[in-house]
């Protein structure tokens, strides 16, 4: 047992020592040799990546990943990831590609390789009762607005628009307080709110405002995989150009986001 453990450690060390050299061997060759593309996607973020009733991973991001596999002419395998392990999985080589609702940030670019341009984007918006008829952020002034404790947009919402933030620990409490009428609205990620508005239980609610604080999402490959990254850059441009992102949004019941529309226009000029 101990020997096997030591052997495992030795192999890991050897592998990491060789990984610089292995990088030049190119993950694209490995994928083609293996015959499958292994992609890390979310399984709890409807509609971007979630499980269907029989347990298969489906959604916008799995569909995008399938496009990549088709282009390479290989089969696809999905590995569910969460925010806290997605970059580690990529570093360890457990997955070849990660498309997992990750916000593109400079510190993350030091750990993984994020090809440009960004494929998607999400920002801040609110969920509120249709009957309130809110139309702009200024309408929130002096109204209680539910939020999540620790979210960076709480301060902006209260400072710029005068809303009284009522922040809860988790989303469940915030949704429950909104439903109970303790707040006029719930300020949160627009991508999560979009999913809520499609839920029949939330049929009386809407996402009425212009999204603010837009932050782009980046898909990622392991550091050093320049060829793969180059290929992904071309693919992302292609997705924007052909309107594939817009098409997938429609397919999964998301109203076309301003970012996807703008990118589509930009690459069709």
């Amino acid at each position: 047992m101990k020997n096997r453990f030591l052997a495992g450690v030795a192999t890991t060390l050897l592998a990491s020592a060789l990984s610089v050299a292995a990088a030049s061997a190119d993950v694209l060759d490995t994928i083609k040799e293996r015959g499958t593309l292994i992609v890390g996607v979310k399984a709890d973020y409807k509609p971007y990546g979630f499980l269907d009733t029989s347990g298969n991973v489906i959604g916008i991001e799995p569909d995008l990943a399938k496009d990549v596999a088709d282009k390479l002419g290989v089969a696809i395998e999905y590995v569910p990831v969460v925010s806290s392990n997605r970059m580690q999985f990529l570093e360890q080589g457990k997955i070849d590609l990660m498309i997992a609702t990750m916000t593109d940030r400079p510190d993350r670019r030091e750990v993984v390789l994020i090809p440009d341009p960004n494929y998607y984007s999400s920002g801040t918006n609110i969920l509120s009762l249709k009957s309130l008829g809110l139309t702009e952020w200024e309408d929130l002034r002096n109204k209680p607005v539910c939020g999540i404790q620790g979210a960076f947009y709480n301060k902006a919402t209260s400072q710029n628009y005068g809303a009284e933030i009522v922040a809860f620990k988790g989303t469940a409490e915030a949704y429950s307080a909104l439903k109970a009428g303790n707040c006029a609205a719930f300020v949160y990620d627009d991508s999560a709110i979009v999913a809520k508005t499609n839920d029949p239980e939330w049929a009386d609610y809407e996402m009425p405002l212009q999204t603010i604080d837009d932050a782009p999402w980046g898909l990622a490959v392991a550091l050093g995989e320049e060829n793969f990254a180059q290929m992904m850059s071309d693919m992302i441009i292609d997705w924007h150009k052909t309107g594939r992102i817009l098409e997938l949004e429609t397919k999964w019941g998301v109203t076309n986001t301003p970012f996807a529309k703008a990118m589509n226009e930009k690459y069709n000029q």
């Binding site: 309130l132 009522v166 109970a180 009428g181 303790n182």
Partner: peptide, 12 residues
């Protein structure tokens, strides 16, 4: 309530 919605009779 004053913003046109229905809120519980007692607040937090």
């Amino acid at each position: 309530n004053d913003w046109g919605g229905q809120s519980p009779i007692l607040g937090s």
